[in-house]
Structures are given as C-alpha cells and as structure tokens.
Design a protein around this nucleic acid. Structure first.
Lengths: 183, 183
DNA sequence: GATTTTGTTCAAAAAAAAATGAACAAATCA
DNA sequence: TGATTTGTTCATTTTTTTTTGAACAAAATC
C-alpha cells in the first residue's frame, strides 16, 4: 500500500478555504494557501480554476504526487484531474517525474517562470501573430476593393491596417525577448 | 433626424460574417473583417467577445461613432454596448471624442499598443503583484507554524515561496519596461 | 484468465459568464 | 410642461465553459 492512507479517517470538517478541502489526506493549511494563490492567478490569466488548484497542490507538495494523490487532496473528479493534468503538461507547466519503483506516474511543477509564461504565450498569443500577416494583407486588399468607401475613408483604414501590422511585428519581436528576460 | 437612417429598409440578408451583421447601416465587408480580427484577439485575451466587436467596429470606422451608431451596426443590445463601452473606457482602449455640434458622445479607438496592453496589464496583473508580497510573507510564516511538516519538507516549501517572491519581483519590474518598450 | 489498479473519454449536469431588454433617469426640445 | 432623445441599470435569460461521473481501456497482479 502506498504512502497515503486509504481508509477513511473521521471526515474532517470542511476546512477554512472554500473549495480547497478534501477528505482523506487533509491539506495542511499552508498548502491550502498555496492553492488559493494559484487559483487567483488562474483567474487572472483566464484559465479554469481547476488548473490553478492542480498546479497549486503540486507546487505545495515537497514531493511529486500521483494522479490519485491529487484526486484525494482536491475536491475534484477524476475527469477534471485527468484533463487538467493533460492541459498543464501541454502548457509545460508540470512535468512527469517517474518515481521508479511503481507503475504510476508522478507529477511535479515546473518552477521556471520562463517556462510557464512561455507556455501560455505560445499557446494563446503566438498563433495569432503567426497567421496575422496574411490576414492583414487580405484586409488591405479588401479596402481597395471596397465599394462603399470614399477615397479619404479608405486612406484612414489603410493607415489602421498598417498600424495593426506594426503591432503584430512588435509583438512577434517581443515574445522571444520576453521569455529570455525571464531568466 | 440624425445621420443614420431609422425607418426600415428591406432587412438585409444576414451578411457573410457570423455574428457581425446588423440591420440598418450594413457593415462593409472590410469592416466585418476588422471586427473578426478583434473578436479573435478578445478570445485570446480572455475578454468577452462583445468588447472585441465594439472595439473592432470603432477601429474599422474612419470617423468616431456614437453609442447609437454602434448599436445599429452590431447585433448587440443597448445594454451590452453600454457596458462594453464603459469597460473599454476604463481599460483606456477607447476615448470619447466630443463632436461639438451635438449632445451625443462619440467614441474612437485608442490605437497606441502601449495604451492597450498597459490597460490590460494594469487591470489584471498588477493587483496581484502589488498585494503579493504580504501574502507570500504570510505563507512563509505558516510554513514555520505548520504542524504536519518535517524539517526537510518545510525547507522545500520555503524555497518554493522564495521562488514565488522572485517571480513577483521580476514581474513587477517587467511591467513598466514592457509598456515602455511598446513605443 | 479473472480481478484490481490506474487512468482516459465523453455525454450530460452544473456553474459561470455574457447578453438581453424593459424600466428608469437625465438632458433636450417643442 | 409634456414628449423625445440618449443612454444606464440590473433582474432575467441565454450561451459558453467547466465539471462531473459512469463507461471503458490497458496494464499489472493474483
């Protein structure tokens, strides 16, 4: 039998922090705090709360945790944890640490800021910057083709497209620098 | 009677772009394109689609638009437009341009990237960085107070808090630089 | 080869976020 | 003053996102 108890201790009264408690290996208050922190961050970044919880519980654990460990500690279904782990992995926010002696996978948090920020940017910003150029070109073409636009209006819009292309260019240049600066 | 027609022209067939059409002053295709662009950006940034539409219709207009102009051009309710304009203003993404001769307010987009990015960061990231320090200190204190932690475990967690504080510090240092770099 | 352990998938339920629209307010106009 | 225009507010509805949990699969174990 693995480290964590599996029989049922007297069901702990729902602990201080709202959605953070669980039944079997009740969370230390410190750990609940960590989790709150990452839940808040998740909200700020617009990613689902459960991702914050999962990353948080890993960040707050001195040792890697297995899938089941996570399900036990958080009040989340297996489904959520499974999908959450997948997402976090695809973002590069966590890493599988194979504890050698058993079959289960164990997870630990990636703690390099650059990796985390980089993952999010790659996932949510870069795609737009990449396909952006062609799309802007097409918009430019449509301005010329536009029936309902006076010459002066067309000029304003063309200037705006140009401005967008500048945004795009700056953005594309900035991303790599950003992740480099985040040591 | 104001500029925009108010009687009912034969209801234009729903125009190409999905949610972008409107009835009276049907959008030029170019303008629908602009709007699509900003709707996509809104999704990437995790702000409501309507904000993208509103900013988009302003960005795609060679002249400032009034509240009513926007309601007419977009398939959005007055309520949504009212709230959307307020949010965009508080983000600094649009600006009121008072056309002098009439009572209505007119809006135009803020086209400086730094203003836009700055607004979002100020709104969604800065608050966390500001209050972060104290919260981290409190977590640190709780680690020491923690009953269920071995000395070694406490050390790992303390190191993690330290790492978070580093993140926070770097983030706080980076934001101003960022908005400066975005010329 | 049956059973248990470990985890994934995905339709359905629940929760959260966004949009609507009717009631309301304030300014202008007749 | 009464009617109109311009917009705001906010309870309700709609839509979207997230979570759940039961059914399933694959590997290990008995």
């Amino acid at each position: 039998m693995p480290t964590s108890a599996s029989s049922s201790p007297p069901p702990a009264a729902p602990s201080a922090a709202g959605a953070v408690s669980a039944t079997p290996p009740a969370l230390e208050p410190v750990q609940a705090r960590f989790i709150e922190l990452f839940v808040a961050a998740a909200e700020a970044l617009g990613v689902p709360r459960s991702l914050g919880e999962i990353y948080g519980v890993l960040y707050a654990s001195p040792r890697p945790l297995s899938f089941q460990d996570i399900v036990d500690r958080l009040a989340l279904s297996k489904g959520s944890v499974s999908q959450g782990l997948r997402t976090l992995r695809s973002l590069g926010a966590i890493r599988a640490a194979g504890l050698p002696d058993d079959r289960r996978e164990y997870f630990e948090p990636e703690t390099e800021l650059r990796t985390l920020v980089g993952g999010l940017l790659r996932d949510r910003i870069s795609p737009h910057l990449e396909h952006g150029r062609q799309r802007l070109d097409r918009v430019g073409a449509e301005i010329s083709a536009g029936k309902g636009l006076s010459r002066a209006e067309a000029a304003v819009l063309r200037a705006r497209v140009q401005k967008l292309e500048n945004w795009r260019r700056k953005g594309a240049a900035l991303l790599p620098v950003l992740t480099r600066v985040l040591s």
